[in-house]
Design a protein around this nucleic acid. Structure first.
Lengths: 342, 342
DNA sequence: GTTTAGCACTCATTTGAATAGAGTGCTAAC
DNA sequence: GTTAGCACTCTATTCAAATGAGTGCTAAAC
C-alpha cells in the first residue's frame, strides 16, 4: 500500500511526534539521518501521505501529525519490537519474587508496575466468573433479620453479601442449606452455580424444608455475591501529565469515565485473546476519542482469566506499551498458573 | 475583636468570594444592600481588616480575598446555619429508605450523596477496629501451602487474607484452631484480639499441638486481616471544576495524595468528635494548603465509629458543607445503630 | 467624629499591530 | 526523480497603548 520511502517517513513522523507532542516538519525528518532525502522530497511525500489519510495538518504552516489511520499503520506495520530496559525487567522480577499470596494482590501489584513503567494509566480486570469455581459457601446469621453470605472461590477470592433472612427461616435451616450447598456444589464453576442450584438443590430443599420459595430466594440472592468483575486502576493521575489533557474539560471526561466501573468492565472485555490496540475513535466510547487503549489477556492454565490494559493519549509509546503488556500478561499467567494450577 | 461593621463586611466579602472566586471590591459590597455604607467607608474598613490579617490583596488594584484567618473567623462567628433545600433532604431520605444491608454499602452510598450534594470530594473512613468485635473466624485450606483466613466482624464486615501454611501443619490442625478461636474469642473487640490470642489461646494450643511457634505465627498473621480502616472516595473529579485547580500542577498534588490511602486515613482520623474544620495551612499536609477539609464523626450506639469528610478549595461553601455533614453523620449514626445496635 | 464624594494613582488585563519564525507548496534547475 | 530557491501562509511572540477595576488619600459634608 505504501512505498518503502513513505513507510519510512511515516515511521519517522509518528516516532518524532510521540516523543515531542509537536507537529513535525520536513526539515527535522530530513535531519534525523534515517531518511536521507532533502526536505523538499519529504514534503512531497508528506503531502501524499496526508492525501491518503495517514497524516493531518493542524494548519497550513504547521508540520504534520499522525491521524488515527497513521497510528494504525504504525502499530500494524512499523512499531519496532521494543526490548525492555534492564531496570524495567527488574520490576518484573519483583512481581515473581514477592510473596503475593492472593490473586488480587498479584493483580494490584501488576497494575502498579504497569503504571509506573509506562507513565500511563493501567486498568486491570479481575477474574471472570467463567474461570473460577466454588470452593466454599457459608451463611452466617448476623441479627434476627440479616445474615452474611460468604463465597470462597477456587482461586481464594472471598466475596460476601449481606442478605435479609426471610420470615420464618431459622438459623438451623440456614446451616442445613449451607451444608447442602457445599456438599453438592463445591467445585462447580461460578457461572453455572445458579442453574445447578435449581436443578440439584431445589428438590433436596423441597424435601427438607417447608419454606421452599423463600429459601431458594435467599440462596439465589446470596449467590449473587462476587458476580461482577473487579476493576483495578493505577496511575490515573498520570493522565494529568499528558500535554493533550492540559484542557481540563477533556481531562474530566476521561477521569469521570474511569470512575464508572461497569462501563470500564464492558470496554475492556472482549472475546479477542492476546494483545488488542484500540486507537482514538476506534474506541466505542466517546470519552476515549483522544485516547488509545491497549489490552492484553492473562490466563490460568490456558483459560482466559482476566484483562490488563493501558490507557493513554493516542500519541502513545505503542512499541513500549505493547512490549510491556505482552511480557506482563505472560508473567501474570505464569504466576497464577504456578500457584493455582492443578 | 471585630466591630459589628467589620464583621458584616468580612462576612459579605467571604460570601461574595465563595460565590464568584474573584477578588471582591468595595463597590460591590456597597451595592449588596446588607452593608449600607459608601464604598469609601468600606474601603477604610477593608484596609483595617487587611492590616489585622483577615483579608489579602492579590495586587494593589485588585479587590480583597479572605485569608485563612478570614475564613476561620467566618466559620467560627459568621457562617449562617444553612437550612438544606428540599431536594437535598430528598437524597437523605433515600439513604434511610434504600435497603442497604451492609455497613460498607451505607458508607459508600453516603459518600456518593455527599459528593453529589456539595460538588466537592468526599472522603469517608470505615469502621475503626476499636468498635467492632469478632463474630466468626475461619481458616480454609486452598492448596498444600496456602489457606485463606476469613474474619467476620460484629457489623457483618468480611475480611480475608491468604496466608502460607507452615510446614507440618495439617488441615485438621487448622480446623481445631479455628474452632478454638471461635469458642474463646468470639465477641472480643478486634483491637484486643492479638493480646487475647496470646493470653488465652496460647496455652491451649501448647496443650493440643506440637508446632506451637508455627501455629501462633499463622494465627497472628491471619488476624492481621481487616486491620486497616477502609477509605471510600467519591467525586474526586469534582476537584477539576474548581477554578483554583485550573493549574494542573496543583491539581496533581492533591489528586496524588487522594490515592495514598494510608496518608488519608492518618489525616482524617482525629480524637476530636463532632465537626472539625481545617482551613488551608491548618492542614498538616503540604498538598492541602489550598484546600479545606471538613470532617464529622459518625457513631454506633454512641461509640465513635468512623469519619466522613469533605475536601474542597479553601474557598468552600462552609455553611452548606457543615450543615450537610452534620445531618448526614447523624443520619448514618441512626441508620447504623438501628441495624446493628444491641 | 464619622461618613462620603472626588480624584489621582496603580496595576492586571485586553487589544491591536508589527515582527519573527516555522513550515509549506510550487517551480525551475540539476 | 530529486532538490534548491522562494513566495506565501499562518501561528506565536512581542510591545505599546488603551481599558478598567479598584485603591488610598484628602477635603468637604453631615
Amino acid at each position: 500500500m505504501l512505498s518503502e520511502r513513505q513507510s519510512m517517513i511515516l515511521n519517522a513522523i509518528v516516532d518524532d511526534y510521540i516523543r515531542s507532542a509537536e507537529p513535525v516538519g520536513s526539515r527535522s525528518i530530513s535531519k534525523r539521518g534515517d531518511v536521507a532525502f532533502s526536505p523538499a522530497t519529504i514534503r512531497n511525500e508528506m503531502a501524499d501521505l496526508e492525501e491518503l489519510g495517514f497524516l493531518e495538518q493542524p494548519h497550513t504552516s504547521a508540520g504534520r501529525i499522525p491521524s488515527n489511520k497513521g497510528y494504525r499503520y504504525y502499530v500494524d506495520h512499523l512499531a519496532p519490537l521494543n526490548p525492555l530496559k534492564a531496570e524495567d525487567l527488574k520490576l518484573f522480577k519483583q512481581l515473581a519474587a514477592e510473596n503475593l499470596n492472593a490473586v488480587e494482590e498479584v493483580i494490584q501489584h501488576a497494575g502498579t508496575i504497569l503504571a509506573t513503567m509506562t507513565n500511563y494509566t493501567s486498568i486491570l480486570l479481575g477474574p471472570e466468573m467463567f474461570n473460577t469455581s466454588l470452593r466454599h459457601f457459608q451463611l452466617l446469621p448476623l441479627s434476627e433479620t440479616t445474615a452474611v453470605a460468604i463465597i470462597v472461590t477456587s482461586t481464594g477470592e472471598v466475596e460476601n453479601k449481606t442478605v435479609t433472612i426471610p420470615e420464618g427461616v431459622s438459623a438451623s435451616d440456614m446451616e442445613v442449606m449451607a451444608n447442602l450447598l457445599n456438599a453438592k456444589l463445591a467445585g462447580v464453576p461460578m457461572h453455572k452455580l445458579k442453574a445447578r442450584l435449581y436443578s440439584e438443590i431445589g428438590q433436596e430443599i423441597q424435601r427438607h424444608a417447608d419454606h421452599y420459595e423463600k429459601l431458594m430466594q435467599l440462596l439465589d440472592d446470596a449467590l449473587a455475591a462476587g458476580k461482577d468483575q473487579k476493576v483495578f486502576l493505577s496511575g490515573t493521575t498520570n493522565m494529568l501529565i499528558q500535554p493533550e489533557f492540559k484542557d481540563i474539560g477533556k481531562l474530566k471526561t476521561v477521569l469521570d469515565l474511569l470512575e464508572e466501573t461497569p462501563t470500564l468492565t464492558r470496554l475492556l472485555n472482549s472475546e479477542h485473546k492476546g494483545i488488542q490496540v484500540r486507537i482514538g475513535s476506534e474506541n466505542v466510547h466517546q470519552a476515549f476519542v483522544n485516547c488509545s487503549l491497549i489490552t492484553a489477556t492473562y490466563s490460568l492454565e490456558g483459560e482466559s482469566f482476566g484483562t490488563i490494559g493501558i490507557l493513554g493519549p493516542t500519541r502513545m509509546e505503542y512499541a513500549k506499551v505493547i512490549g510491556t503488556l505482552d511480557l506482563l500478561s505472560r508473567a501474570m499467567s505464569r504466576a497464577l498458573t504456578g500457584r493455582y494450577g492443578a
